[in-house]
Amino acid sequence: TFVALYDYESRTETDLSFKKGERLQIVNNTEGDWWLAHSLTTGQTGYIPSNYVAP
């Protein structure tokens, strides 16, 4: 799992909003700078900017 370093507000319907400190499970990280992730807090799935999270 990864932890959010910053808050992120989604800009498209495929993005995932999250708050700093939220735990995220990475589903697919082969898309370059945008990873498909599942929030362990909200249960939602969407794309996140990879530079906003850390292991």
Rank of each mutant, 00 (worst) to 15 (best):
T1P: 07
F2E: 00
F2A: 05
V3H: 06
V3K: 04
V3P: 01
A4E: 00
L5E: 04
L5W: 04
L5D: 02
L5T: 04
Y6F: 12
Y6K: 09
Y6T: 06
Y6Q: 09
Y6I: 07
D7K: 04
D7A: 06
D7G: 05
D7H: 05
Y8Q: 01
Y8L: 03
Y8V: 02
E9I: 13
E9A: 10
S10M: 06
S10D: 02
R11H: 11
R11G: 10
R11I: 12
R11F: 10
R11V: 14
T12I: 10
T12F: 14
T12E: 11
E13T: 11
E13A: 13
T14I: 11
T14S: 13
T14D: 11
D15A: 10
L16H: 02
L16S: 03
L16V: 06
S17H: 05
S17F: 04
S17Y: 04
S17W: 04
S17Q: 07
F18S: 00
F18P: 01
F18V: 08
F18L: 07
F18C: 04
K19P: 01
K20H: 05
K20V: 08
K20R: 11
K20C: 07
K20I: 07
G21S: 04
G21Y: 05
G21P: 00
E22L: 01
E22G: 01
E22I: 01
E22S: 04
R23P: 08
R23I: 15
Q25R: 15
Q25V: 15
Q25N: 09
Q25D: 07
Q25A: 10
Q25E: 13
I26T: 03
I26R: 06
I26K: 06
I26D: 00
I26E: 01
I26P: 08
V27K: 08
V27A: 07
V27D: 07
V27H: 08
N28A: 12
N28C: 12
N28I: 10
N28Q: 10
N29S: 14
N29D: 13
N29W: 14
N29A: 14
T30D: 13
E31D: 15
E31N: 15
G32E: 11
G32A: 14
G32C: 10
D33S: 13
D33T: 12
D33F: 15
W34R: 14
W34M: 13
W35Q: 03
W35R: 02
W35E: 01
L36H: 04
L36M: 08
L36G: 01
L36S: 03
A37M: 10
A37V: 13
A37L: 02
A37K: 00
H38V: 15
H38F: 15
H38Y: 15
H38W: 12
S39C: 03
S39Q: 04
L40A: 06
L40M: 10
L40I: 09
T41K: 12
T41N: 11
T41H: 10
T41G: 07
T41D: 15
T42H: 03
T42R: 05
T42E: 01
T42N: 06
T42P: 01
G43D: 06
Q44K: 15
Q44S: 08
Q44L: 14
T45F: 10
T45S: 10
T45W: 13
T45M: 12
T45L: 08
G46T: 01
Y47D: 02
Y47R: 09
I48S: 00
I48E: 00
I48Y: 01
I48R: 00
P49M: 07
P49L: 07
P49Q: 06
P49E: 02
S50N: 07
S50F: 08
N51V: 08
N51T: 12
N51E: 11
N51K: 13
Y52I: 06
Y52T: 05
V53A: 05
V53N: 03
A54G: 09
A54K: 12
A54C: 11
A54E: 13
A54S: 11
A54L: 09
P55C: 08
P55D: 08
P55A: 11
P55K: 09
